[in-house]
Simulated scan of single mutants.
Amino acid sequence: MIKNFVMLTFDLEEFDIAEEYGQKVSHSDQMTVTKTGTERLIALLDNHNIRATFFTTGNYAQLNPELIKAISLKHEIASHALYHSSFHKFKETDILESKNILENITGSKVTGFRMPRLKSFDHKVLSGWGFVYDSSINPTYLPGRYNLLHKSPLPYRENGLLELPCSTTPTLRFPLFWLAFKNLPIGLYAALCRRTLRKRKNLMLYFHPWEFAEIGDFKMPGYVKSPDGIELVDKLDKLIQNLKKQDAEFVTCQEFCETLEIAGESMKSV
């Protein structure tokens, strides 16, 4: 019997999104907001006894090594490049530097990568640096961002790397990303997840720890910041309970890759 796998993933980064809307966020607030949300998420995951993957920037890890080490004792730490903010000029070697930082802090190999803002990056380079998988593809159409409808919604291999696409619904390719979770009624969002899980046999969902802190006072659009805090934690709790009823197995991205390798499944574009 083929199992249904759910990957809960969190982009653990500096809280800088308000700066995209013109509000300067102090360094202290960037760290505190993210830490508050992260601690709430860890408590929720512990309550359900499930593991998740935290795509972490090297910068945030360097500034919060004890938190990252503690997370790594149960969950997977993967790379989210060195900085998340677009105000830092990106260098290709930032990715390798972030990998080294995370491995030094956790004492474990870092095998996964997600590019900030889901931008593309050369799979050959990532594979050469020792990454096993990438999860930077959202195979949908988002006006003003990207049109990736030509990409497979299922896991596939490309230039020696496993690509784990972010989940979209069958047929319409509606993205099940963080904004959909935040803005749709939980009943509808959970139903879309169940339908996708039945069809694809896996769910790759992604969120940000800062969403689960109180961010209502920051100058951002309502659809970005609300709901937040404990209300959003409760919403994720309901989603997890709902998916557990589908006999879903919650795994880290690395664990999911291992199931694919063991099963010898074909990962062709579909």
Results as ranks from 00 to 15, higher is better:
Pro165Ile: 02
Tyr156Asn: 02
Lys244Gly: 10
Arg173Gln: 05
Arg173Asp: 02
Pro170Ser: 01
Glu231Cys: 11
Ser135Arg: 05
Pro209Phe: 10
Tyr146Asn: 09
Leu192Cys: 13
Lys235Gln: 11
Pro209His: 03
Phe207Glu: 02
Thr196Arg: 09
Glu163Pro: 05
Glu249Val: 10
Asn138Asp: 15
Asn183Ile: 05
Leu142Gln: 10
Gly187Ser: 13
Asn147Ser: 05
Gly160Leu: 12
Thr169Arg: 02
Ser136Tyr: 08
Ala213Tyr: 11
Lys199Thr: 12
Lys201Gln: 15
Lys245Arg: 12
Gly144Met: 03
Glu158Phe: 07
Asn138His: 14
Leu164Ile: 15
Phe174Pro: 00
Leu205Tyr: 10
Lys235Met: 00
His150Arg: 03
Lys238Ile: 13
Leu232Met: 13
Val251Lys: 02
Leu236Phe: 08
Thr196His: 01
Tyr133Arg: 07
Pro175Phe: 11
Gly187Pro: 01
Tyr141Leu: 12
Lys238Asp: 15
Arg145Val: 15
Leu161His: 01
Leu149His: 03
Gln246Glu: 15
Phe212Cys: 02
Gly160Pro: 03
Asp237Trp: 02
Ser152Ile: 08
Leu179Ala: 13
Pro139Val: 00
Leu188Pro: 05
Trp178Tyr: 11
His208Pro: 08
Pro153Lys: 03
Arg195Pro: 09
Phe174Cys: 01
Leu232Glu: 09
His208Val: 08
Met220Ser: 03
Asn147Glu: 15
Lys219Leu: 08
Pro227Ile: 07
Ala248Val: 09
Ile137Ser: 14
Thr140Gly: 11
Lys151Asn: 12
Phe177Asp: 09
Leu148Met: 15
Tyr223Leu: 15
Tyr189Asn: 13
Phe207Asp: 00
Lys219Phe: 06
Lys219Ser: 14
Leu205Cys: 12
Gly229Leu: 05
Phe218Val: 08
Phe218Met: 09
Glu211Ser: 05
Glu214Gly: 02
Leu192Pro: 00
Gly187Phe: 09
Thr140Met: 04
Asn242Ser: 13
Phe207His: 04
Glu214Thr: 11
Cys166Tyr: 12
Pro227Cys: 06
Gln241Lys: 15
Leu203Ile: 04
Asn159Pro: 06
Leu197His: 04
Glu231Gly: 09
Asp234Glu: 05
Val233Leu: 02
Ala190Lys: 08
Thr252Pro: 04
Arg145Asn: 07
Arg145Glu: 14
Lys201Arg: 09
Glu231Lys: 14
Lys201His: 13
Leu197Thr: 05
Asn202Arg: 11
Phe181Ala: 01
